[in-house]
Simulated assay, not measured.
Amino acid sequence: MGIGRFSYTVILPYMQETFAFSRATAGFLATSNYLGYLVGALVAGRLQLADKRIPFLQIALVMSILTTAFMGFTYTIMVWYVLRFISGVMSAFIFVVAASLVLDQLARIGKAHLSGLFYSGVGMGIALSAIIVSPIHAIFN
Score class of each variant (00 low, 15 high):
V43N: 03
V43S: 03
V43D: 07
A44L: 02
A44Q: 08
G45H: 10
G45T: 11
L47Y: 10
L47S: 11
L47C: 09
Q48E: 13
Q48T: 12
Q48A: 14
Q48K: 14
L49I: 00
L49P: 00
A50C: 06
A50F: 05
K52Q: 13
K52I: 02
R53I: 03
R53P: 05
R53V: 06
I54V: 15
I54H: 12
I54F: 13
P55L: 04
P55K: 07
P55R: 12
P55W: 10
P55S: 08
F56N: 08
L57N: 03
Q58D: 02
I59N: 09
I59G: 04
A60I: 06
A60S: 15
L61S: 10
L61C: 14
L61R: 01
L61K: 04
M63L: 15
M63C: 15
S64V: 03
S64G: 14
S64R: 02
I65M: 12
L66D: 03
L66K: 04
L66I: 14
L66S: 04
T67G: 05
T67R: 05
T68F: 06
T68N: 05
T68H: 03
A69M: 12
A69L: 13
A69C: 13
F70C: 07
F70Y: 11
F70H: 01
F70E: 06
M71I: 14
M71K: 07
M71Q: 15
G72P: 05
F73K: 11
F73W: 15
F73R: 09
T74H: 01
Y75I: 12
Y75F: 11
Y75D: 12
I77D: 02
M78F: 11
V79D: 02
V79Y: 08
V79A: 10
Y81D: 05
Y81M: 09
L83E: 02
L83Q: 01
R84W: 09
R84H: 06
F85I: 03
I86T: 03
I86R: 03
S87I: 00
S87C: 01
S87T: 06
G88F: 04
V89P: 04
A92I: 05
